[in-house]
């Protein structure tokens, strides 16, 4: 077993997910099944092979830092669960 229920509890916290005790057991089982399978990569000799985050020669693309019209505020807020005075509302943070 690669991950314990305690590990999964922490992964859930990092992922901002709440798990019930039942969930925890189930996810621990399925994550271990997956990780056992992924272990096959260990047999692959990758020595000094360059890792490829992207396979095409893509680079940062810059544009002129000029003023341009963005999304209208009203449209940007239209899907928000709670809005007040032109801003997103969240529970009190500080």
């Amino acid at each position: 077993m690669t991950v314990s229920e305690k590990d999964v509890e922490q992964l859930a916290f990092f992922s901002r997910l709440d798990l019930t005790a039942e969930d925890k057991a189930a996810y621990t089982k399925s994550l271990n099944t997956i990780l056992d399978y992924l272990a096959m990569l260990k047999e692959l000799d990758t020595g000094a092979v360059e890792p490829a985050a992207h396979v095409l020669p893509v680079k940062n693309v810059f544009r002129e830092d000029s003023l341009r019209q963005g999304l209208e505020r009203e449209l940007a807020l239209a899907n928000a669960p709670e809005v007040e005075e032109g801003a997103f509302v969240v529970p009190r943070i500080v």
């Binding site: 901002r16 997910l17 709440d18 940007a76 899907n79 928000a80 669960p81 709670e82 997103f88 969240v90 529970p91 009190r92 943070i93």
Partner: peptide, 18 residues
Amino acid sequence: GVRYGLRVDAGDVLGMFS
């Protein structure tokens, strides 16, 4: 749960996220 889609309310921000 802030800008779009589902929000499930909770007492604090972290609780709302999760």
